[in-house]
Design a protein around this nucleic acid. Structure first.
Lengths: 193, 193
DNA sequence: CGTGCAGTTGAGCAAATTCAACGCTTGTGG
DNA sequence: CCACAAGCGTTGAATTTGCTCAACTGCACG
């Protein structure tokens, strides 16, 4: 169960306002969910790495869009089938609830992140990504500076400046612009206070 | 079912880190959930008006605390009983899921709010409160400027200045500091763009 | 080679914060 | 009953932070 589907980089998986017909599991690549603001800016709500589920929503209309950050493969599930299953099967209902509650927690963490200074946001972001990535200390960011900036509510310039500053402070290394090596986790944790 | 309990203004209903044993329904008064940040600042995650449910959480440990903003009465429910009920009864499970998904939506809206300018945040906040209050155009804010500021991620000074500016622009009236009358909803909506 | 895109860096600017003072209301004690 | 302190809200001036605009680099791709 779950039909595989492929998307090229920057392809839209679903758009804001479309009917909520499916949910998805990332097999390969990375997905972002985001929303265009009226002033043309964009807010990225979440990133989804392989293994993670996205697209669960209460309303029948998408309030965010989902796009492939890199070429990606996802499994597609029928939303109505899930809801029916949850109605009959207590365990399935529990899974669905846990999933939603988990996303709620992530949203709340994201909320706290947006309350902080630029340095704290970037440091917290790096720690979050490191937590979710296989190798604990080296991160290969799948997303562009623009994606990072829109997730953190900053400009790409501020993200870039902050990263170089963290490198100067010997907290991280930047072998390439997409690769980050955490040199001093403790000081990052401190900066993301 | 549901045991009534009273709290005086500023009393703690539950604290960060405590075991998640109950959920609550507001009968009377207003409740805030919030978190203390390491730098001493505080982030208010949500306000809960009469009729609304709060305290639903995935983890066994509270990640936020809940406090009475005004003298308040709440109904207390056993969390374990709710989870058991949801396991057996598909409808109850659905209600629990809808509740959680609803809070997720609110968190996402809050997230978007924090991406905006001070004026947009205050305008959006007023519209949100007006939506949730009985009388559509006159709002009696139950919370202090500090609460509003910590909810919007601003300082009390900025909130205060922004309100007086909205009053000067004829978008609102401020008969008293806690009472706001929406004079021009359209322009508020525009400002909260 | 040139073109275009992603990322970095710099200078000036705008927005919100910090710090400080002040007014108003409320509650307390002389 | 008045004096005074405390809490809340507002206002002003100076400062800081992050943004805007612009130039520049490195790299991939035709």
């Amino acid at each position: 169960m779950g039909i595989p589907k492929s998307f090229v980089r920057n392809a839209e998986i679903y758009g804001e306002g479309e009917p909520t017909e499916h949910l998805y599991r990332v097999v390969n690549g990375t997905v972002r969910t985001c929303k265009l603001l009226s002033d043309g800016r964009r807010q990225v709500a979440s990133f989804h790495l392989p293994g993670e589920i996205f697209g669960v929503e209460l309303r029948d209309e998408r309030s965010f869009s989902a796009e492939a950050i890199s070429d990606a493969v996802v499994l597609v599930f029928k939303r109505s089938a899930m809801i029916e299953l949850a109605q009959r099967d207590g365990d399935a209902a529990r899974d669905l609830w846990i999933l939603t509650a988990h996303q709620l927690q992530q949203a709340q963490d994201h909320l706290l992140l947006l309350a902080k200074s630029a340095q704290e946001r970037v440091a917290a972001f790096l720690l979050e990504m490191a937590m979710r990535m296989p190798d604990g200390n080296a991160i290969d960011l799948p997303m562009s500076r623009r994606d990072v900036a829109d997730y953190l509510g900053l400009t790409i310039e501020t993200v870039s400046r902050t990263l170089t500053q963290l490198e100067n402070d010997a907290a991280i290394e930047l072998p390439t612009s997409r690769r980050v090596v955490l040199r001093n986790r403790a000081s990052l944790g401190c900066l993301s206070a």
